[in-house]
Amino acid sequence: MTALTAAGLSKSYGARVPAVDRAGLELRHGRITCLLGPSGCGKSTLLRLIAGLERPDAGEVRTPDRVLSDAASFTPPEQRDIGLVFQDYALFPHLTVEQNVGFGLNRLGGAERRARVMAQLERVRMADRADAYPQALSGGEQQRVALARALVCEPGVVLLDEPFSGLDGRLKQEVRAAALRTLRESGAAVLVVTHDAEEAMMMADELALMKHGRILQTGSPRDCYLQPVSPEAARLLGDTVELAATIRDGRAETPFGALPAAGSGPGRLVARPEAFRIADSGAPVRVGSVSFAGPFVLAEIEAEGQKAVARVPHALAPSSGDLVHIRLEPAFCTVFPD
């Protein structure tokens, strides 16, 4: 069920390129949407427009029952029933953990507020630190308190701005798993802004790819990864190899092999590095440098003047200078006519 719709949102600062350019999103109850894009692409601005912390120049934000902002009206952020977790958590340093989490419940009586706060702190396993001040908490603990503070008011929509970027490595994974669990339990429509493609694909039910202020593609992580709508969208989700192709007779031909394709004339084949499989037969290619990359090996391959990087399992790793045969895995390739 739709919880919030944003459509045609634009925002520019000064005369430069707009920060957000006619962007739209749909958030659904119980679903996690990840907004992915490089830094500076406008994703945080889009989030602030939805939250009401910025006024859009154009466009509309609405829930099924009411318009939150359009050309004629603007609901201030405090009346939107939206929770927001800030990148720097923005915990109030002069308040304890309990007071921070209870901040938004000031209309409730003392006992009821305390019960709600403690129940929420229980859920993020921070109840034992209720009397601590934020400065005394670790980064992961601060993150959990910030999440509890946003969820305790039971908002219909929760927005998270790069919520895990301040954490490192192992801690990040743990905090993320716990946060994901808590968010799903809450039943809210969730929007997570991130620049980490892997994180986005792991977390998201729904993915929105953003660049230069525009939404390039929305869909499930799988669809976005395997069926990018443009080379640009493909690049946002991971490494790509882009090859010049000639489309004729329903096939796109490249020096590394051919794939079914519509249309005719010149085009471009965008492939993931795992699309290049070393096989007994197929297109002959020359191996350039080979580098170790942990779980697999990256091999530079070259054919007819075009270069690609293949992601190869260790067992099949070629040596530099070898002549090998390559077959293209169609699932990891997309053809775009020029």
Partner: peptide
């Protein structure tokens, strides 16, 4: 200066008006 913009934003998101 100790009050970051996001702290003010957080207060707004938690139901406070600007003067609140």
């Amino acid at each position: 200066e100790r009050v970051t913009p996001s702290m003010i934003g957080a207060a707004r998101m938690l139901g406070q008006t600007e003067s609140g």
